[in-house]
Design a protein around this nucleic acid. Structure first.
Length: 421
DNA sequence: TCTGGGGTCCTAGGACCC
DNA sequence: TCTGGGGTCCTAGGACCC
């Protein structure tokens, strides 16, 4: 049976939501009406464009431009910081409104949802439902959305990306040649900046060119990705709307340092505070990590990552940090200026026990070791509770030296702030 | 005054075992 | 002395998304 799919996409989400918040707080200007962007902080070296107003877009500003570039393109540009707490709230409001139409909703990102409306149309048409959602979001929530209307997720997503803002577009199978095939191939979902130039060299310039090209040839050249892009270009997508929240496959945090760091001791301090965050998030998910991964980015933007599989799954901050520290030691070349450091846990499982290890390892483990583990667990639990209550800003491990290290880092951050001001 | 941070999935090569 | 593949696990890196 034909499926009935909607894709709801908030227009300039971060900027619109910031605009609403400002208006709520008495602002006289609506930043949606002027050349404005939501951007990172240049002094923290995270100066990129996260969202832009229509007027900023008209200047040629693109998402992920540097703020420096954006300013050059548009003198007089207004720049505002992001606020993810506000974004999450608005995202939830949208989700709750959409729940009135179907419970089969996939939250594809903070500002995008897929709705499976099959069996939820109630004698109405899919297009009418899309129009109703578009109208109600605007009237009840105060921001606008684009709605894509189609028979699968890919086509619904492509449709919502047509003219913006505040529009409802269909993309039925018979409309593919007129509405989609004339678009440049770079507009197709999942075709990024690496693949597009390769296709151009093959004289594949529009989505239509791709649709009419040879599938086997693409498979040979691009593997699975080649088959997928051919199917997408032809509007083929059988994937389901994943409405049940899924357990994460991995959890990670990373930080671009306010200034390059070339001393491993300092990198270790930062790694500890990241391990603390990651461990906290992992325990909140009630999951255990089997793989620890450390990522470094040099001052010249060269990324490397190394990982290690653990003998048994863990959620202990201490163990995560211990392994991460070993990995860092192995991969870090003395004196290299580091711009970014990150820590991820992967291969997550829902149990602490690794079947293979139960009989072998646990029995062999000394009682001393077990006691230490118990102690660590208690410590993690206690610190988690404190974080829950007061936020996770100034809480760190209990070890005296490590606390000092953490304070040192905080001071270091503050010093950078002062310099800038 | 260049270039965020959070993810997922895929591929390729080496180690190791049979 | 020389010469096999198949399968699985592990790791590093790349590509893509928002």
């Amino acid at each position: 049976m034909e499926r009935q799919i909607l894709h709801v996409d908030v227009n300039n989400a971060f900027l619109s939501w910031t605009a609403l918040e400002m208006l709520k707080n008495g602002s006289k200007i609506d930043i949606r009406e002027i050349p404005a962007i939501i951007g990172g902080d240049e002094s923290k070296r995270s100066g990129i464009v996260l969202a832009k107003s229509m007027k900023a877009k008209e200047c040629g500003i693109k998402t992920a431009d540097t703020i420096y570039q954006a300013k050059m393109k548009c003198p007089g540009l207004k720049i505002f910081p992001s606020n993810f707490k506000i974004y999450k709230e608005n995202s939830n409001k949208l989700y709750n409104l959409l729940l009135q139409y179907t419970d089969k909703i996939e939250r594809f990102s903070i500002d995008e949802c897929f709705l499976d409306m099959t069996n939820y149309l109630m004698n109405d048409t899919l297009l009418n439902k899309g129009k109703e959602i578009n109208k109600r979001v605007k009237e009840e929530l105060g921001f606008t959305v684009n709605v894509g209307v189609a028979h699968n997720k890919l086509l619904a997503k492509m449709a919502s990306d047509f003219t913006k803002p505040d529009r409802v577009h269909t993309l039925w199978e018979e409309e593919i040649p007129t509405k989609m095939w004339n678009l440049p191939v770079s507009e197709l979902f999942m075709l990024g900046k690496r693949t597009v130039p390769k296709l151009y060299n093959m004289q594949i310039k529009t989505i239509g060119d791709l649709a009419k090209s040879n599938k086997e040839m693409l498979a040979k050249k691009f593997g699975k990705h080649g088959i997928m892009m051919w199917e997408y270009a032809n509007g083929i997508d059988n994937s389901e709307v994943k409405y049940k929240p899924e357990k994460p496959k991995g959890i990670g945090n990373s930080i671009t340092l306010p200034q390059d760091i070339s001393e491993i001791e300092k990198l270790e301090e930062i790694l500890l505070s990241i391990a603390d965050q990651v461990g906290y998030r992992l325990r909140k998910e009630k999951m255990y990590a089997n793989v620890i991964n450390v990522q470094l980015r040099t001052k010249n933007f060269i990324d490397t990552s190394h990982q290690k599989k653990l003998p048994a799954p863990t959620s202990s901050t201490k163990e995560i940090y211990k392994t991460a520290k070993e990995i860092l030691k192995e991969m870090y070349r003395k004196g290299t200026p580091i711009r970014l450091i990150g820590l991820r846990v992967d291969n997550l499982t829902e149990t602490e026990q690794n079947q293979k290890q139960i009989s072998l390892f646990d029995n062999l483990e000394s009682t001393e070791n077990q006691k230490d583990k118990e102690k660590q667990k208690k410590l993690d639990e206690t610190l988690d509770k404190i974080k829950e209550k007061y936020g996770d800003n100034l809480i760190t491990r209990a070890g005296k030296m490590q606390v000092e290290d953490f304070v040192k880092f905080k001071k270091y951050e503050i010093k950078k702030e002062d310099k800038k001001g």
